[in-house]
Computed example of a mutant assay.
Amino acid sequence: MPVTNPWLAGPAPTRRLDHDRLSERILNLLSSQNMCVLATTGPDGPLATPVRYHHLDFTLMFTAAPRSPKMRNIAADPRASLGVFAPLVGQASSRGAQVFGEARLLDRGDEGFEHHWSAFRWQSDHVERSLPLDEPPAGPLVVVEATRIVYTEHWLRRDGFAPRQFWRPAT
Protein backbone atom coordinates (compact mmCIF):
# COMPACT_ATOMS: atom_id res chain seq x y z
CA MET A 1 0.00 0.00 0.00
CA PRO A 2 1.41 3.45 -0.85
CA VAL A 3 2.30 5.69 2.10
CA THR A 4 1.23 9.31 1.88
CA ASN A 5 3.92 10.68 4.19
CA PRO A 6 6.77 8.16 4.52
CA TRP A 7 8.80 10.63 6.58
CA LEU A 8 6.31 10.12 9.45
CA ALA A 9 7.27 6.44 9.76
CA GLY A 10 9.95 5.24 12.11
CA PRO A 11 11.51 7.01 15.08
CA ALA A 12 11.20 10.77 15.25
CA PRO A 13 14.34 12.87 14.74
CA THR A 14 15.75 14.61 17.82
CA ARG A 15 17.45 17.64 16.23
CA ARG A 16 16.45 21.05 17.64
CA LEU A 17 15.63 24.21 15.71
CA ASP A 18 17.68 27.29 16.58
CA HIS A 19 15.88 29.84 18.78
CA ASP A 20 15.15 32.34 15.99
CA ARG A 21 13.69 29.75 13.65
CA LEU A 22 11.58 28.19 16.42
CA SER A 23 10.37 31.64 17.51
CA GLU A 24 9.31 32.40 13.92
CA ARG A 25 7.29 29.17 13.68
CA ILE A 26 5.57 29.82 17.02
CA LEU A 27 4.69 33.40 16.03
CA ASN A 28 3.29 32.10 12.74
CA LEU A 29 1.01 29.74 14.67
CA LEU A 30 -0.09 32.45 17.12
CA SER A 31 -0.82 34.81 14.21
CA SER A 32 -2.79 32.28 12.19
CA GLN A 33 -5.19 31.26 14.98
CA ASN A 34 -7.47 33.17 17.34
CA MET A 35 -8.77 30.53 19.74
CA CYS A 36 -7.01 28.72 22.54
CA VAL A 37 -7.91 26.61 25.53
CA LEU A 38 -7.01 28.30 28.80
CA ALA A 39 -6.18 25.95 31.67
CA THR A 40 -6.42 27.27 35.23
CA THR A 41 -6.78 25.64 38.64
CA GLY A 42 -9.30 26.57 41.29
CA PRO A 43 -10.92 25.17 44.42
CA ASP A 44 -12.92 22.67 42.37
CA GLY A 45 -9.85 21.49 40.44
CA PRO A 46 -8.67 22.16 36.88
CA LEU A 47 -10.72 24.23 34.45
CA ALA A 48 -10.17 24.28 30.67
CA THR A 49 -11.94 27.14 28.90
CA PRO A 50 -11.94 28.06 25.20
CA VAL A 51 -11.13 31.76 24.78
CA ARG A 52 -10.54 34.05 21.83
CA TYR A 53 -7.09 35.59 22.12
CA HIS A 54 -4.88 38.23 20.56
CA HIS A 55 -1.14 38.24 20.92
CA LEU A 56 1.75 40.66 21.10
CA ASP A 57 4.91 38.70 20.41
CA PHE A 58 4.82 35.83 22.93
CA THR A 59 2.18 37.37 25.19
CA LEU A 60 -1.40 36.17 24.76
CA MET A 61 -4.27 38.44 25.80
CA PHE A 62 -8.00 38.12 26.31
CA THR A 63 -10.85 39.73 28.22
CA ALA A 64 -13.37 37.96 30.43
CA ALA A 65 -16.27 38.72 32.70
CA PRO A 66 -14.80 39.60 36.10
CA ARG A 67 -16.96 37.04 37.95
CA SER A 68 -16.32 34.14 35.57
CA PRO A 69 -14.84 30.89 36.92
CA LYS A 70 -11.60 31.45 34.98
CA MET A 71 -11.15 34.91 36.52
CA ARG A 72 -11.81 33.52 40.03
CA ASN A 73 -9.20 30.83 39.39
CA ILE A 74 -6.64 33.36 38.09
CA ALA A 75 -7.18 35.51 41.18
CA ALA A 76 -6.47 32.51 43.42
CA ASP A 77 -3.57 31.08 41.37
CA PRO A 78 -2.17 33.06 38.41
CA ARG A 79 -0.36 30.09 36.85
CA ALA A 80 -1.88 29.36 33.46
CA SER A 81 -1.39 27.22 30.40
CA LEU A 82 -2.89 28.02 27.02
CA GLY A 83 -3.20 25.46 24.24
CA VAL A 84 -3.16 26.91 20.72
CA PHE A 85 -3.59 24.55 17.78
CA ALA A 86 -4.23 24.55 14.06
CA PRO A 87 -7.02 22.40 12.61
CA LEU A 88 -5.93 18.77 12.37
CA VAL A 89 -6.41 17.01 9.05
CA GLY A 90 -3.94 14.19 9.67
CA GLN A 91 -0.70 13.48 11.50
CA ALA A 92 1.31 15.54 9.00
CA SER A 93 -0.76 18.66 9.80
CA SER A 94 -0.38 18.36 13.58
CA ARG A 95 0.72 21.80 14.81
CA GLY A 96 0.19 23.41 18.19
CA ALA A 97 1.73 25.06 21.22
CA GLN A 98 1.36 24.81 24.97
CA VAL A 99 2.09 28.26 26.36
CA PHE A 100 2.97 28.50 30.05
CA GLY A 101 3.08 31.67 32.16
CA GLU A 102 1.36 33.70 34.84
CA ALA A 103 -1.85 35.56 34.09
CA ARG A 104 -1.90 39.24 35.05
CA LEU A 105 -4.97 41.44 35.09
CA LEU A 106 -4.39 44.91 33.68
CA ASP A 107 -6.89 47.73 34.12
CA ARG A 108 -6.75 51.12 32.43
CA GLY A 109 -4.06 53.15 34.13
CA ASP A 110 -1.99 50.09 35.12
CA GLU A 111 1.58 49.95 33.90
CA GLY A 112 1.68 48.06 30.62
CA PHE A 113 -2.04 48.36 29.88
CA GLU A 114 -1.72 50.78 26.95
CA HIS A 115 1.17 48.81 25.46
CA HIS A 116 -0.87 45.60 25.39
CA TRP A 117 -4.21 47.25 24.65
CA SER A 118 -2.84 48.69 21.41
CA ALA A 119 -2.52 45.13 20.06
CA PHE A 120 -5.90 43.93 21.34
CA ARG A 121 -8.44 43.96 18.49
CA TRP A 122 -11.71 44.37 20.39
CA GLN A 123 -13.45 46.20 17.54
CA SER A 124 -14.39 43.00 15.66
CA ASP A 125 -16.24 41.71 18.74
CA HIS A 126 -18.14 44.97 18.99
CA VAL A 127 -19.16 44.89 15.34
CA GLU A 128 -20.29 41.28 15.71
CA ARG A 129 -22.40 42.14 18.78
CA SER A 130 -23.73 45.50 17.44
CA LEU A 131 -21.93 47.44 20.17
CA PRO A 132 -20.66 50.99 19.60
CA LEU A 133 -17.07 51.30 18.40
CA ASP A 134 -16.46 54.38 20.52
CA GLU A 135 -16.96 52.38 23.77
CA PRO A 136 -14.19 49.81 24.30
CA PRO A 137 -14.72 46.98 26.80
CA ALA A 138 -14.51 48.10 30.42
CA GLY A 139 -13.25 44.90 32.04
CA PRO A 140 -9.64 44.03 32.73
CA LEU A 141 -7.27 42.78 30.08
CA VAL A 142 -5.74 39.41 30.95
CA VAL A 143 -2.16 38.99 29.71
CA VAL A 144 -0.11 35.81 29.87
CA GLU A 145 3.53 36.36 28.97
CA ALA A 146 5.10 33.08 27.90
CA THR A 147 7.84 31.83 30.18
CA ARG A 148 7.99 28.53 28.32
CA ILE A 149 6.39 27.04 25.20
CA VAL A 150 6.21 23.44 24.06
CA TYR A 151 5.73 23.57 20.29
CA THR A 152 4.67 20.56 18.24
CA GLU A 153 4.78 20.38 14.45
CA HIS A 154 5.09 17.00 12.78
CA TRP A 155 5.97 18.58 9.42
CA LEU A 156 9.38 19.40 10.96
CA ARG A 157 10.24 15.70 10.64
CA ARG A 158 10.53 16.17 6.85
CA ASP A 159 13.62 18.30 7.42
CA GLY A 160 15.11 16.07 10.12
CA PHE A 161 13.93 18.05 13.16
CA ALA A 162 12.15 16.77 16.25
CA PRO A 163 8.39 17.27 16.04
CA ARG A 164 8.36 18.58 19.63
CA GLN A 165 10.46 21.68 20.31
CA PHE A 166 11.02 23.63 23.55
CA TRP A 167 11.12 27.45 23.67
CA ARG A 168 12.10 29.89 26.42
CA PRO A 169 12.57 33.66 26.13
CA ALA A 170 15.98 34.69 24.84
CA THR A 171 18.32 35.74 27.63
Rank of each mutant, 00 (worst) to 15 (best):
N34C: 04
P46C: 02
Y151V: 11
W167H: 00
R95L: 09
C36P: 02
T147M: 12
D110E: 05
S68Y: 02
R158Q: 15
V3I: 14
R25E: 15
P137Y: 06
F58T: 13
N5S: 10
F113Q: 05
L30C: 05
S130H: 10
W167T: 08
Q123E: 01
E135V: 11
S23F: 00
G83M: 15
R121M: 04
E102K: 13
A64H: 00
A39S: 15
H55T: 05
R129T: 07
Q165I: 08
G45E: 00
L47H: 13
S93W: 03
S31Y: 03
G139Q: 13
I26S: 00
G90W: 03
A12F: 09
A9H: 12
V150T: 14
Y151F: 15
T147D: 13
L56C: 08
H115M: 06
R25T: 11
P46M: 00
E102M: 08
Q91R: 06
W122E: 04
W167Y: 03
D57I: 05
S93G: 08
Q165S: 10
D77P: 04
N28W: 13
F166V: 11
I26Y: 01
R79Y: 03
F113V: 07
D107F: 05
E145A: 13
F58C: 09
E111P: 08
N5K: 10
A146K: 00
P78W: 05
L17M: 11
F85H: 11
M35R: 11
R168A: 11
D134K: 10
D20K: 12
G96I: 03
G10A: 01
S68L: 06
P140H: 07
C36F: 04
P50Q: 08
A97V: 14
Y53S: 01
M35N: 05
F120S: 05
G83T: 15
S94W: 06
D125W: 12
G139C: 09
L38T: 00
P132H: 04
R164S: 13
R158F: 01
A138S: 13
I149D: 01
D159E: 15
L106V: 10
E24N: 12
R158M: 12
V143M: 02
D159C: 05
H126E: 05
H54M: 04
D125Y: 14
D77M: 09
S118N: 10
F58V: 11
A92R: 12
E135L: 06
A92C: 07
D107H: 10
P163C: 02
